[in-house]
Computed example of a mutant assay.
Amino acid sequence: MAEGTVAAEELRLLIERIERLEEEKKAIADDVKDVYLEAKSRGYDTKTMRAIIRLRKMEAHARQEADALLETYKAALGIE
C-alpha cells in the first residue's frame, strides 16, 4: 500500500509540474504575441519577422539547402 501511495504522490507532483510549465508556456506565448503587436504598431511586417526568426533557428547548411531548393522551384516555374 505504501508503494502505491508513493507512486500516486509522485504522479501528482509530476502532473503539477507539467501544469505549471504549461501556464508558463502560455504566459511566454502571450508575451511573444505582445511583442509582435508592438512591432506591427511600429510599422514592421510581422509575417516577414516570423520568416526571419524561422530562418535564424535553422542550421546554416539547412538554410542554404532550403534556399537552393526554393531557387530551383522558382526557376522551374519561371518566377524571378
Score class of each variant (00 low, 15 high):
2 A>L: 07
2 A>N: 06
2 A>F: 00
2 A>W: 00
2 A>G: 05
2 A>R: 07
3 E>S: 12
3 E>Q: 10
4 G>Q: 10
5 T>Y: 06
5 T>S: 06
5 T>P: 01
6 V>Q: 02
6 V>W: 02
6 V>L: 04
7 A>I: 11
7 A>E: 08
7 A>N: 05
7 A>C: 07
7 A>D: 09
8 A>D: 05
8 A>S: 09
8 A>H: 05
8 A>T: 11
9 E>Q: 11
9 E>P: 00
9 E>A: 08
9 E>I: 12
9 E>V: 13
9 E>N: 06
9 E>K: 04
10 E>K: 00
10 E>S: 07
10 E>D: 08
10 E>W: 01
10 E>V: 04
11 L>T: 04
11 L>V: 04
11 L>W: 03
11 L>D: 03
11 L>N: 04
12 R>M: 07
12 R>E: 01
12 R>V: 07
12 R>H: 05
12 R>P: 00
12 R>Y: 04
13 L>S: 07
13 L>F: 04
13 L>D: 01
13 L>G: 03
13 L>C: 10
13 L>P: 00
13 L>M: 14
13 L>E: 03
14 L>K: 10
14 L>I: 08
14 L>Y: 02
14 L>V: 10
14 L>F: 03
14 L>Q: 13
15 I>C: 07
15 I>R: 01
15 I>K: 02
15 I>A: 09
16 E>C: 01
16 E>T: 08
16 E>G: 01
16 E>N: 10
16 E>L: 13
17 R>L: 08
17 R>E: 08
17 R>V: 02
17 R>A: 03
17 R>F: 00
17 R>P: 00
18 I>Q: 08
18 I>E: 06
18 I>G: 01
18 I>S: 02
19 E>F: 00
19 E>C: 00
19 E>Q: 10
19 E>G: 01
19 E>T: 05
19 E>W: 02
19 E>K: 08
19 E>P: 00
19 E>S: 03
20 R>Q: 04
20 R>K: 11
20 R>W: 00
20 R>N: 03
21 L>K: 09
21 L>N: 06
21 L>P: 02
21 L>F: 06
22 E>V: 12
22 E>K: 12
22 E>N: 07
22 E>R: 11
23 E>F: 02
23 E>R: 14
23 E>M: 07
23 E>A: 09
23 E>Y: 03
23 E>V: 10
23 E>Q: 11
24 E>T: 09
24 E>L: 09
24 E>H: 11
24 E>Y: 09
25 K>M: 12
25 K>A: 12
25 K>T: 11
25 K>R: 15
26 K>C: 01
26 K>Y: 05
26 K>F: 05
26 K>V: 12
26 K>M: 10
26 K>L: 12
26 K>Q: 12
26 K>T: 13
27 A>L: 10
27 A>F: 08
27 A>E: 14
27 A>S: 14
28 I>H: 08
28 I>Q: 14
28 I>T: 14
29 A>K: 14
29 A>C: 03
29 A>Y: 07
29 A>V: 14
30 D>Q: 15
30 D>I: 13
30 D>P: 04
30 D>L: 13
31 D>M: 14
31 D>S: 15
31 D>W: 06
31 D>F: 10
31 D>R: 15
32 V>R: 14
32 V>P: 06
32 V>L: 15
